[in-house]
């Protein structure tokens, strides 16, 4: 069979091969796109339909209405709860990024031969179930948990006066979320740091930059896409998180994600309001992703 030049026009390509070429893209993309459509877009469309009362769980007349959206946007309660969740997620994400960066920096740039073993240790908790890892914290933080037992043993606290705000509190939610998501944050930062061109650091050093200046002017800007990606990896899922708060959050650790679940499942089903809250969360996350995506481009090194 004759080879076809890269520059030859399509009409010169034998038709069976042309057909193969034409079908490659749709074949490769077809299944994932169909999967996405059936299991992501269609369910979202159904939830959206519930939010506008096009669908309704309850018998009786229903049809397109903006009532649930109007009620939500005029409800200070739900919006305040959303803001509470945003603040908590932002705090958790920022703290974890600050903690994970030095860790990833050490693994990527210290030159240690054991970095992949250390990396494996970092992600080792993923080998156990998410639920189990959250529940383990109950054993640690409870009134009779490991922390309080240690405090009793040292005499810093008496059994009658344990540190009782460790569990069933907002603090517990933040601590557990931080623990759960730390590896997710460290990995993208590690990848961005490891792909750093070391010659840039050498050049900075040759040009008289101190290690701190080299970090500030070279390493940090070039690793920013990894940092932003890591931040998003935590911020987006924790914004709608409901498992951890329901297990260790108690009344004060109740978050927006819990409210969505409860509107669908407890008391009396209110799928309209639950759908509105879900769509609002989805919209906010989509906007944030678009906004942050521009920071995911490789950074630039500035020279004074």
């Amino acid at each position: 069979m004759a080879l076809v030049d890269a520059g030859s026009s399509p009409e010169h390509v034998p038709w069976p091969r042309r057909l193969r070429l034409d079908l490659t893209t749709p074949t490769l993309l077809g299944l994932p796109l169909a999967w996405l459509a059936v299991f992501f877009l269609v369910p979202i469309a159904i939830v959206a339909a519930y939010s506008f009362d096009v669908y309704s769980l309850n018998p009786g007349p229903h049809g397109f209405t903006l009532t649930a959206w109007h009620d939500f946007l005029h409800s200070s309660v739900y919006l305040r709860l959303f803001w509470k969740s945003v603040k908590l997620s932002l705090t958790v994400s920022a703290i974890i990024v600050l903690l994970a960066y030095p860790l990833a920096y050490y693994l990527a740039l210290s030159g240690t031969k054991r970095k992949y073993i250390l990396l494996l240790l970092l992600i080792a908790p993923f080998l156990t179930s998410y639920l189990l890892r959250v529940l383990a914290w109950k054993v640690i933080l409870g009134n009779q948990g490991a922390v309080n037992t240690f405090l009793f043993w040292t005499g810093l606290r008496s059994p009658d006066h344990p540190l009782s705000q460790l569990l069933y509190s907002r603090f517990a939610v933040m601590l557990v979320l931080g623990y759960i998501w730390l590896p997710f944050v460290a990995l993208p930062i590690f990848v961005s740091l490891e792909s750093l061109d070391r010659r840039l650091l050498e050049a900075a050093s040759d040009l008289g930059a101190s290690r701190l200046q080299a970090f500030r002017r070279v390493t940090l800007p070039l690793s920013l896409p990894g940092v932003v990606a890591a931040f998003l990896f935590v911020f987006i899922p924790t914004l709608g998180e409901f498992v951890t708060p329901s297990l260790v959050g108690g009344a004060s650790g109740y978050l927006y994600g819990n409210q969505i679940v409860d509107l669908f499942e407890t008391g009396f089903p209110d799928w309209e309001t639950g759908s509105v809250l879900s769509m609002f969360l989805l919209g906010v996350v989509a906007i944030l992703t678009v906004v942050f995506a521009r920071f995911l481009q490789p950074g630039e090194v500035t020279v004074d």
Binding site: A251, Y254, G267
Partner: peptide
């Protein structure tokens, strides 16, 4: 008025 009761309770938790 179960739906109303449920909504009020959800608001208590969210407040």
């Amino acid at each position: 008025r179960r739906a109303q009761y449920a909504r009020l309770w959800e608001e208590v938790k969210a407040s």
